[in-house]
Amino acid sequence: AQASVVANQLIPINTYLTLVMMRSEVVTPVGIPAEDIPRLVSMQVNRAVPLGTTLMPDMVKGYA
């Protein structure tokens, strides 16, 4: 199964992502692939992302 990117903490709206904020986990539904974690660093979330939430492409500015 493919691992997705999951929030490792509460990520406030407009926060620039860093490695410590994200982890990879096999979840349903599938979100942003874990292999894209390096690409996500320094990208901004466009909403608050609670701890344990799967990151979806529409949550990250400029990802989709």
Rank of each mutant, 00 (worst) to 15 (best):
L51P: 14
E25T: 08
I13G: 14
M56E: 07
G52F: 08
V45M: 06
S24G: 15
V41E: 05
P57I: 05
A7N: 02
M22S: 00
P12V: 04
I11Q: 01
T15N: 06
N8M: 10
E25F: 05
R39F: 05
Y16H: 10
L17V: 07
S4K: 01
G52W: 06
P50W: 06
V30K: 08
A7I: 06
V26L: 14
L10H: 15
A7D: 01
L40A: 01
A3V: 07
P12M: 09
L17M: 12
V27A: 10
Y63N: 08
L55A: 00
I11N: 00
V49T: 06
V41C: 04
Q2Y: 08
N14R: 06
I32P: 00
I37Y: 03
G31K: 00
Q44G: 04
V60C: 03
P33L: 14
G31A: 04
V20G: 15
D36Y: 08
P38M: 12
A48W: 13
T54A: 05
V6Y: 02
Y16V: 11
S42W: 04
A34F: 07
K61A: 12
T53K: 11
T18R: 05
V27H: 04
M21T: 04
V5L: 04
L55I: 08
L51E: 09
A3P: 15
L51S: 11
E25K: 07
T54Q: 04
L51R: 08
T53V: 09
D58N: 14
T53C: 03
S4Q: 02
N46V: 11
M56G: 05
A34Q: 10
S42F: 06
T15E: 15
P33R: 13
V45P: 04
T28K: 07
V27L: 07
R47C: 04
R39T: 13
I32T: 02
L19D: 10
S42V: 04
A1H: 11
V49Y: 02
A3N: 09
M56F: 11
P38Q: 14
R47T: 07
M56H: 09
A34P: 10
T54M: 07
I37W: 03
P29N: 13
V30R: 12
M43W: 04
V41K: 06
L40Y: 02
A7F: 01
V30E: 09
M59R: 03
A7V: 06
M22K: 00
L19N: 10
M21P: 00
T53W: 09
T54C: 03
P12A: 12
L51A: 12
T15C: 03
V60K: 01
R23F: 06
N46H: 11
L55F: 13
V5F: 01
Y16P: 10
A48T: 13
A48E: 15
N8G: 10
V6K: 04
P38D: 11
T54F: 02
R23S: 06
L55H: 01
V5P: 02
V45R: 00
L40Q: 01
A34C: 04
A1C: 04
V41F: 12
V20Q: 09
L19K: 05
E35H: 08
N8V: 14
D36L: 08
P57E: 05
A48C: 04
V30Y: 10
V60W: 02
S4D: 00
N8Q: 07
V6H: 02
V26K: 09
N14M: 11
G52P: 00
S42L: 11
T28A: 15
V30P: 14
R23P: 01
I11S: 02
A48N: 10
T54G: 03
A1M: 12
L10G: 09
I37R: 09
D36F: 11
Y16C: 04
P38I: 05
L17T: 00
S4T: 04
I37H: 03
Q44R: 12
G62F: 10
M21L: 11
S24K: 07
L40P: 00
S42M: 12
S4H: 01
D58S: 13
Q9Y: 10
M56S: 10
N14T: 05
G62E: 07
N14W: 11
R23Q: 05
V49N: 01
I32C: 03
E25M: 10
S4N: 01
I13L: 12
A3E: 10
M59N: 05
S42E: 09
N46G: 13
S24C: 03
V41A: 10
P50G: 07
M56A: 05
D36W: 14
V49Q: 02
V60R: 00
A1E: 09
Y63R: 02
Q2R: 12
Q2I: 09
M43T: 06
A1F: 11
P38K: 15
L40E: 00
Q44F: 06
A34V: 06
P33A: 12
M56C: 03
A7R: 01
V20F: 15
V41P: 04
V30A: 11
S42P: 02
M21N: 06
N8P: 02
R47N: 12
M21I: 03
R39S: 06
L17A: 00
R23A: 11
S42G: 14
L19G: 12
K61S: 12
Q9E: 12
V49D: 01
E35T: 09
R23W: 04
P38Y: 12
L40D: 00
I11V: 05
A48D: 14
I11K: 00
A3K: 14
D36T: 10
G31M: 02
M56W: 13
L40W: 01
A64Y: 04
S24P: 12
P29T: 09
R23Y: 09
Q9C: 04
G62R: 06
G62M: 13
I13R: 12
P29G: 04
V26S: 08
Q44K: 09
A7Y: 01
V26W: 08
I11R: 00
D36V: 09
N14G: 13
N8H: 06
M56Y: 07
R39A: 12
A3S: 12
R47V: 13
M59W: 12
Y16N: 09
Q44V: 06
L40G: 00
E35A: 13
L51D: 09
I32W: 02
V49L: 13
M43F: 13
A7Q: 00
Q44P: 05
S24Y: 04
S42H: 15
V27T: 12
M21A: 06
R39H: 11
N8E: 08
E25Q: 13
R23I: 08
T28L: 07
Q9T: 15
S24D: 15
A64K: 03
A3F: 14
V30M: 15
P29S: 06
L10P: 13
G31L: 01
D58Y: 14
S24T: 06
P33V: 06
N8D: 11
M59C: 03
G31D: 01
L19S: 04
A7K: 00
L10S: 08
I11T: 01
V20W: 06
E35W: 13
S4L: 01
L51K: 14
R47M: 07
M21G: 03
L51Q: 10
M43I: 04
